[in-house]
Design a protein around this nucleic acid. Structure first.
Length: 375
RNA sequence: GGUAGGAUAUCCAAGUGGCUAAAGGAUGCUGACUGUAAAUCAGCCCGCUCCGGCGUUCGGGGGUUCGAAUCCCUCUCCUACCA
């Protein structure tokens, strides 16, 4: 049984429409996955996530193991029932925290030791530990522990990160089999590192392919490099990955970046941008992003996006949202998170429709032009 | 009528001779946010500005001093207590 099926390939670009099968249901790609680090997509109720069309959400190994711990979640029946989300969940391995919590961790041969950002206690996370945690959680798609180096790292540093990532990938892959998890429907994705060094990206991708993962991620992007470089790295890396497996760019991006990456053949994306930006009063629209707190919206009785079918746009004006943010009312971030996530989810749905209809390239170019014109 | 305290920028509020266009908040305006240590962070917020500065401020008026938001006199208004 194939876990990932490419339904249609675009003629003019590398875009594809596909289906990824998981234990908790199918995921239609291209797909945007809202980030729910601590077993909650901040400000969103699961029923709202469903209503706006979320097919799969993220959780995080590092955070959930610190609190409430993966053992507790396992005892309570797993993350799906714990957080009342019965669709697929992808968990990150803690690899990104190697980058984002660089000041609090020590890299070792067989893993990373973190000084907990909550209470300072030492926590060791190796590839096996990370997988144990992700299995305790009951994640549908587990990610291998990787080392995500910063954007401006030297060739030597980058090479070390790639080698370590590959060692850990091998340990993870073997452990997966050892645990009897092949052919269970649960996924284990490998992660390509290599920074700005194309040959290392290729070497890393080739090595991972030999290990035979059920999906492949492009990691180590949006870690300080300029946007053009980010896109270039994804563009050159995606073709190194097997065509019959899901391709996932981790942690990006903006609406236009998403469309470009779909054109490079990437199927899956996650990013905190729509949810975080929403909490900080930024709303995404077809004509670019806007700051809902701007004075120009004071008397604006139109919705964030005219004709957009979601609870926020169907019922509330920009003037009201502006008031909520000005008053620091929690409903503001909630309503805007719902809209922004819907915007990103909908964008990927539209991309899928246009791939299936055969006019993806024309449509996505026009879409980006309209969006960029407003920024 | 008496006594005491007070009046600082849009608001609250520090400052009691030069380092003060004046701390700190708040409000207001603007910007950032990319596998979430982020409901966070940054800038501007007296006027003008070619952003390097220039000009006018600390209830009103007068004075002391090289120099005053800061000291003295006086007036106005607030607050508390006493008659």
């Amino acid at each position: 049984m194939k876990s990932f099926v490419v339904e249609k390939k675009d003629d003019k670009t590398l875009a594809r429409a596909g289906t990824l099968e998981t234990v908790h249901g199918e995921i239609k790609t291209p797909v945007f996955m809202p980030v729910g680090t601590q077993a909650t997509v901040k400000g969103m109720m699961p029923k709202d996530l469903e209503e706006i069309g979320s097919q799969v959400i993220l959780g995080n190994t590092y955070h959930l193991n610190l609190r409430p711990t993966s053992e507790l979640i396992a005892d309570l029946g797993g993350i799906h029932s714990f957080m009342n989300w019965d669709k697929p969940i992808l968990t990150d391995s803690g690899g990104f925290q190697v980058f984002s919590l660089a000041k609090l961790r020590k890299l070792k041969e067989d893993g990373v030791s973190f000084k907990s950002h909550l209470d300072g206690r030492e926590i060791f996370l190796g590839p096996r530990e990370s997988l144990d945690i992700q299995r305790n959680l009951g994640s549908d798609i587990a990610m291998v522990l990787d080392e995500c180096p910063p954007g401006e790292c030297s060739r030597k540093e980058c090479s070390e990160a790639v080698e370590r990532t590959l060692r850990w990938a091998k340990v993870s892959r073997d452990y997966w089999t050892e645990k009897g998890l092949d052919e269970t429907g649960y996924h284990l994705f490998g992660i390509v590192q290599g920074g700005a060094y194309d040959d290392m990206r290729k070497y890393c991708a080739d090595s991972l392919r030999e290990m035979d993962f059920t999906g492949y991620a492009i990691g180590g992007v949006s870690v300080g490099e300029p946007e053009t470089e980010l896109l270039r790295q994804v563009e050159i890396t995606a073709p190194f990955l097997p065509e019959d497996k899901a391709k996932y760019t981790m942690g990006v991006g903006t609406p236009t970046q998403l469309l470009k990456m779909v054109g490079y053949g990437v199927d899956m994306f996650d990013c905190v941008m729509p949810s975080r930006a929403a909490r900080h009063a930024t709303a995404f629209t077809k004509k670019g992003k806007i700051n809902i707190k701007n004075e120009r919206f004071k008397r604006d009785d139109s919705p964030v996006e005219e004709g957009f079918d979601n609870y926020t746009c169907n019922n509330f004006s920009k003037a009201y949202l502006r008031h909520l943010f000005a008053s620091k009312e929690m409903l503001g971030p909630m309503l805007l998170t719902l809209h922004n996530l819907h915007f990103f989810l909908n964008l990927m749905n539209e991309a899928r429709s246009h791939i299936l209809a055969g006019d993806f390239q024309e449509w996505s170019q026009a879409w980006c032009e309209e969006y960029d014109a407003g920024n």
